[in-house]
Design a protein around this nucleic acid. Sequence first.
DNA 1: TGCACGATGAAC
DNA 2: TTCATCGTGCAC
Length: 186
Amino acid sequence: MKGLRKLPRAFYARDTVEVARDLLGKYLVHVVDGVKRIGRIVEVEAYLGAHDLAAHSSKGITERTRVMFGPAGYAYVYLIYGMYHCVNVITECEGHGTGVLLRALEPVQHLEGRTQGPGLLCRAMGIDRRLYGHDLESRDFYLAQGAVSEPFTIVQRPRIGVDYAGVWAARELRFYIADNPYVSRK
DNA sequence: TGCACGATGAAC
DNA sequence: TTCATCGTGCAC
């Protein structure tokens, strides 16, 4: 695919909800064995930092959450339920513990299998813990903007799988492209 | 050093 | 609704 422009660090170093909404329609690129795997982001969730009880960073700085408290534009990859990986992009300023979970992709290039859901997305893109803390301004793993982008409507809903987070579970911090067939859940 | 528990997905 | 499966965080 041509006409892709890598997103600069300044894109990530902004308010997390704004970054989350702006990530819809952007492209995720991972070069595996010289092959460019590309997917269009159609669903994301915002995690607002140490005070957000649904965010991993609410436990403070630990071995796992260390990268969440670092500078924007790096990848936070973790293993969930012992079998799937999930990927976040870190946002805002160092120390905020904020990030955006990528939940679903529309396949664009060299993707095999389903991409509807954070675990399946990582499997199809070949993302695992080796990419923990990876710089998203690198040449082999990054997000990009297309040459042209079609307008779309953004739907806002509560996040998935965070019922334990009290009042934070009800916050509408999940965003997806309306009527897109690759969204994991309506 | 041990153990409860997931930002999931698939089967029943 | 249940279950597979294992790293992390925290209790002891």
